[in-house]
Amino acid sequence: MAVETKYAEWRRENPVIDMHTHISLERLDDAVQFMDDNGLEAMVDITGHTGDPFHGLMEAREEYDGRFEAFGGFDFEDFGTDGWIEREIDRMERYVEAGAVGFKIHKALGLEHTDESGEVIRVDDDRLAPLFDRAAELNTVIAFHIADPKAFFEPLTPDNERWAELEENPEWWWGDREEYPYDWWQLIRQLERVIERHPETTFLGVHWGCAAEEVGYVADVMRDNPNYLLDVSARLSEIGRHEAEFVREIFLEFEDRIMFGTDLGVWDPIMLGAPQGFEPTREDVEEFYDAHWQYFETDEEEIAHPTPIQGDWTVDAINLPREVLSKFYTGNARRHLGI
């Protein structure tokens, strides 16, 4: 049974775009079913595929009459060698022509990707600058997932507030500075420098600018950089820990630059914002979306957030006005991603 908020009927008549999902080509029909169940017009795969997976999604875009869109990605193999930047700029140009709505850079940048000398590549490495300059010329968005929740950089013990999630996904722990040289704030500040250095390029900070624990800091970066966009995917558990009116005011201030996304993974098993250790059903997906509608459309306090494995706490809803929801749910994705 869907949650009937005050905007439920309006939302059914004005379908939503989930601009942050991950979709298996083998489960496209399931993705369509989830969209129809939950009042979605389209899903955007933001995995950042290259090669056959990317082109398969572009074919699906045509076959399913626009229900799917996709970000392209970059291949960091051979980074720093002659020809790498030319190869990836050529990829960007071809993927834009094929219909990519933007390009995703994964959190492996700054953590795992290495250059020709074996050094971990900084997020703000100047050798990436030509990609961002070309993106501006092509009027395409560069999306960054940098770092991860703060807790993933803290000691890996049962006292860690995200212990349940890290126990399920131990490869997400980045707390060993011998192996991963940059701490959380270093990575976040590196991203900020990229945004500042390329004011003509539109950047998207996924997961609330990759820093949902620091809602005010992210708002300050947006104030300083009008080329910076956000999505909210898989971070209501963190955003919702902040005082509801404070968060609401940020949404109102940046109503043209924040987009709706969930981090739903339509693969095997389904992912409800994070791998959760069980196999979700169609009904679980509906509850997942209902938790989002409840957070954004009501003023209820101490409600469950969409992804319980991300933290055993409640959140307070922010009760956005309908004109803001219209931009957040659909209009901003149309404007910035060309959907």
Rank of each mutant, 00 (worst) to 15 (best):
residue 181 P to R: 12
residue 185 W to Y: 10
residue 186 Q to M: 08
residue 187 L to Y: 06
residue 189 R to N: 15
residue 190 Q to D: 07
residue 190 Q to Y: 02
residue 192 E to K: 04
residue 192 E to W: 04
residue 193 R to Y: 01
residue 193 R to C: 03
residue 193 R to I: 05
residue 197 R to V: 00
residue 198 H to S: 03
residue 199 P to V: 00
residue 199 P to T: 07
residue 200 E to C: 09
residue 200 E to K: 12
residue 200 E to S: 15
residue 201 T to S: 14
residue 203 F to K: 13
residue 203 F to N: 06
residue 203 F to P: 06
residue 203 F to S: 13
residue 204 L to G: 00
residue 204 L to H: 10
residue 204 L to W: 05
residue 204 L to T: 03
residue 204 L to D: 06
residue 205 G to M: 02
residue 206 V to Y: 13
residue 207 H to C: 04
residue 208 W to N: 02
residue 208 W to C: 11
residue 208 W to I: 10
residue 209 G to M: 06
residue 209 G to A: 03
residue 211 A to K: 09
residue 212 A to D: 01
residue 212 A to V: 12
residue 213 E to K: 12
residue 213 E to P: 07
residue 213 E to S: 05
residue 214 E to Q: 08
residue 215 V to K: 07
residue 216 G to D: 14
residue 217 Y to L: 11
residue 218 V to Q: 00
residue 219 A to W: 00
residue 220 D to Q: 15
residue 220 D to Y: 09
residue 220 D to C: 01
residue 221 V to R: 15
residue 221 V to K: 05
residue 222 M to I: 05
residue 222 M to R: 02
residue 223 R to F: 03
residue 224 D to C: 08
residue 225 N to M: 04
residue 225 N to A: 08
residue 225 N to H: 03
residue 227 N to D: 12
residue 227 N to T: 11
residue 229 L to S: 10
residue 230 L to E: 01
residue 230 L to Y: 05
residue 230 L to T: 00
residue 232 V to Q: 02
residue 234 A to K: 07
residue 236 L to K: 08
residue 237 S to M: 06
residue 238 E to V: 01
residue 238 E to H: 10
residue 238 E to N: 05
residue 239 I to R: 07
residue 239 I to W: 12
residue 240 G to K: 11
residue 241 R to I: 03
residue 242 H to A: 00
residue 242 H to T: 00
residue 242 H to P: 03
residue 242 H to Q: 02
residue 246 F to L: 03
residue 247 V to W: 02
residue 247 V to N: 00
residue 248 R to I: 01
residue 248 R to C: 10
residue 248 R to K: 11
residue 249 E to F: 04
residue 249 E to L: 08
residue 249 E to D: 12
residue 250 I to N: 00
residue 250 I to A: 07
residue 250 I to D: 01
residue 251 F to V: 04
residue 251 F to K: 05
residue 251 F to W: 05
residue 254 F to A: 08
residue 255 E to V: 00
residue 255 E to G: 07
residue 257 R to H: 14
residue 257 R to D: 13
residue 258 I to L: 04
residue 259 M to P: 00
residue 259 M to L: 11
residue 261 G to C: 05
residue 263 D to F: 00
residue 267 W to K: 10
residue 269 P to S: 11
residue 269 P to Y: 14
residue 270 I to Q: 10
residue 270 I to M: 10
residue 271 M to S: 11
residue 271 M to I: 15
residue 271 M to L: 14
residue 273 G to L: 10
residue 274 A to K: 06
residue 275 P to R: 08
residue 277 G to Q: 12
residue 278 F to H: 13
residue 279 E to R: 06
residue 279 E to T: 09
residue 280 P to G: 08
residue 281 T to V: 05
residue 282 R to D: 13
residue 283 E to K: 11
residue 283 E to P: 14
residue 284 D to M: 03
residue 284 D to H: 08
residue 285 V to M: 05
residue 286 E to G: 14
residue 286 E to K: 15
residue 286 E to R: 15
residue 287 E to P: 03
residue 287 E to V: 15
residue 288 F to K: 07
residue 289 Y to W: 08
residue 289 Y to V: 13
residue 291 A to E: 13
residue 291 A to R: 15
residue 291 A to L: 08
residue 291 A to K: 12
residue 292 H to A: 14
residue 292 H to K: 11
residue 292 H to C: 06
residue 294 Q to D: 12
residue 294 Q to K: 07
residue 294 Q to N: 08
